[in-house]
């Protein structure tokens, strides 16, 4: 029982974090049909910007409410800044290119974003542990869990709700869905796809950065740490269905829980099993478990 609770909690925490990161990726793919490797760059930048802000605030003993403010602000800044530059000046010129070329371009951008970090933030690892330390631990199922890590689950629920509300209940969300469903028809209906693309990319970037910024207090933020995150969130998105929001949720839960179980029971399989699931899903259901509906075209 104790074991089960712990695995569930570990899995949930990890899944929440994966969900926030991969949500941005799946939205970008759904709308723009771009597999954005540079998403890892957003993640890393979010984490770094939040880290230096938190360390500054913590060292100078500011109000701890400001930590959370810094986290969200970092995500917004990173998403806006890099999202705008990348979409406006690079991706926009490529939409008619081969899909593989676009992936490759985002790969190049990922490299550039990674090295920029070295120059802006330096090479030493950052540990913005203040918020996590402040909230401390709580005994659940016989062992201590970090309260801060548990709030990740709360954040994931909030993000998921906002996303659902936005897509289902707002006008802009409906526009977005129509673009996801069929781009050409949307254009002919008078939807400004260029604008939709820009905004989508920025929001996707913000979510990636938010994942990085929020997880930062619980990890050591160091150069190159995003490289594993990229491919992990690829796995989530592929398992759930590329471009599907509920898919990202299910995908993160599967990956999170399976990984937690593996770490407890068979640590050697930790990485292997995630990608094995990804491969199996692709083999059985290539569109992913929750593929968005396809328009029927003649």
């Amino acid at each position: 029982m104790q074991f089960l609770i712990t695995v569930l909690l570990d899995g949930l925490i990890y899944a929440s974090y994966l969900f926030i990161v991969s949500l941005g990726l799946t939205i970008t793919f759904g709308v723009m049909k771009i597999l954005n490797v540079a998403h890892g760059g957003f993640f890393a930048w979010g984490a770094y910007l939040a880290s230096i802000s938190i360390i500054y605030l913590g060292d100078n003993e500011y109000n701890s409410f400001l930590y959370y403010f810094a986290i969200f602000l970092s995500a917004i800044i990173v998403g806006l800044f890099f999202g705008y530059i990348i979409e406006r000046f690079i991706l926009r010129k490529m939409y008619n290119e081969d899909i593989h070329l676009i992936v490759l371009a985002t790969f190049g951008l990922f490299w550039i974003l990674e090295d920029l970090i070295l120059h802006v933030f330096g090479v030493d690892p950052l540990m913005p542990y203040y918020p996590a330390m402040e909230l401390g631990g709580i005994e659940l199922g016989g062992i201590f869990q970090g309260v801060y890590s548990l709030t990740l689950a709360g954040l994931a629920i909030i993000v998921a709700f906002i996303c659902w509300y936005f897509l289902k209940k707002t006008k802009y969300g409906k526009v977005l869905q129509s673009v996801i469903f069929d781009r050409e028809v949307s254009v002919s209906m008078g939807i400004n796809v260029t604008k939709v693309y820009l905004i989508t990319f920025i929001i996707g970037g913000m979510l990636g950065a938010l994942g990085g910024a929020y997880i930062a207090p619980t990890i050591s933020v160091s150069p190159g740490f995003a490289i594993d995150v990229v491919v992990m969130s690829f796995a989530v998105v592929v398992i759930g269905g590329m471009g599907s929001v509920p898919g990202a949720l299910i995908g993160s839960l599967i990956v999170g829980l399976v990984r937690a179980f593996a770490v407890h029971q068979a640590p050697i399989l930790e990485l292997f099993i995630i990608y094995a699931i990804m491969a199996i899903v692709l083999i059985i259901k290539p569109e992913g478990l929750f593929a968005p509906p396809k328009p029927r075209k003649i």
Partner: peptide, 9 residues
């Protein structure tokens, strides 16, 4: 750099 599950185990 991330040892949540390991610490639990």
């Amino acid at each position: 750099g991330q040892y949540g599950s390991e610490i639990s185990a």
